[in-house]
């Protein structure tokens, strides 16, 4: 026989998706935000100099088989006031690409561009993305044809640019992933922390590997690709894994909230 408590539960009418909402758990939201996200952010602000120090070391040793020790160095540049600067690797000076190499790039870019804008591919999101990337690359090619001496960056400049941008990405991602898991998440703090750590681990790994690969390309292939790498394979791609890992978290939230176990997460209207 049922007890009275079981009957009491039936007093609720379980409404449809139209006006249901999730219960706010302010305690766990605040605990997570103030004891995890904000401390993490503060620690990062005071340690990004050290992080870039080690990152530069890592890049140095990874590039050592391809560049001599004399060609590389580690320097410190100012970045955010109060929190300090960043370390980055210095690399050999840029030699402007020769015209044949630029022309080959131009022709190749043009072919890709034509492929993207012709036939059924025209107007497809991927084609538009590639067209825009190719456009940036063509601008770069034209620049190097007409004004190679005025190109404002050395490889070392780019290295500095990259590190500053990467620290910007980490700061933004710490804030964005902290906010979305704190305020747009439900359920255990553990799962939120898991998501947060996964995003940041991915971000650190991706940022470091990309740095080494980009420096390698610039030093060993051509500086011509600098703009393409900066604009097309920069922060835009970082958002992809942020969205994906958050998606995995939301997927879990949906599974729980739609199960018998998760009925308690809902409130009505």
């Amino acid at each position: 026989m049922r007890n009275d408590n079981q009957i009491k539960l039936k007093k609720k009418i379980h409404l449809s998706r139209t006006y249901r909402r999730l219960k706010v758990d302010r305690v766990s939201q605040n605990l997570y935000l103030f004891l995890w996200v904000i401390p993490f952010l503060i620690i990062f602000l005071y340690t990004y100099s050290i992080i870039t120090f080690f990152l530069t070391d890592l890049a140095y040793f990874s590039l050592l088989p391809y560049l001599s020790m004399d060609e590389m160095g580690k320097v410190y540049s100012d970045f955010l006031p109060y929190f300090g600067g960043v370390y980055h690797l210095t690399l050999p000076d840029v030699v402007a690409p020769d015209n044949r190499f630029i022309a080959a790039n131009m022709i190749f870019s043009l072919i890709i561009f034509l492929v993207c804008v012709s036939g059924r591919r025209s107007g497809h999101p991927l084609s538009i993305f590639v067209s825009m990337a190719v456009f940036i690359h063509m601008v770069s090619c034209i620049y190097f044809i007409f004004a190679p001496d005025y190109f404002p960056y050395t490889n070392s400049d780019y290295s500095e640019l990259y590190i500053k941008q990467q620290v910007g990405i980490w700061l933004s991602f710490l804030s964005i992933s902290g906010l979305i898991t704190a305020f747009l998440g439900i359920g255990s703090i553990f799962r939120r922390i898991q998501t947060f750590i996964a995003i940041m681990l991915y971000s650190f790994s991706f940022g470091i590997i990309r740095y080494i690969v980009f420096l390698f390309i610039l030093s060993k292939v051509s500086v011509l690709y600098m703009a393409l790498m900066f604009f097309s394979f920069g922060p835009f791609f970082d958002f992809l894994y942020l969205v994906y890992i958050y998606g995995l978290y939301v997927e879990k939230v949906i599974s729980v909230s739609e199960s018998q176990e998760g009925k308690g997460v809902w409130e009505w209207s």
């Binding site: 990874s62 088989p65 391809y66 991915y202 790994s205 991706f206 590997i209 990309r210 080494i212 690969v213 390698f216 394979f233 791609f237 992809l240 894994y241 969205v243 994906y244 890992i245 998606g247």
Partner: peptide
Amino acid sequence: MGMIVLIFAFTMLLFFPLLGGY
């Protein structure tokens, strides 16, 4: 060799979320 591994890792990390979505 080391750089090939790094380039491969970079490509994987770049496209993994898209692959997951697909």
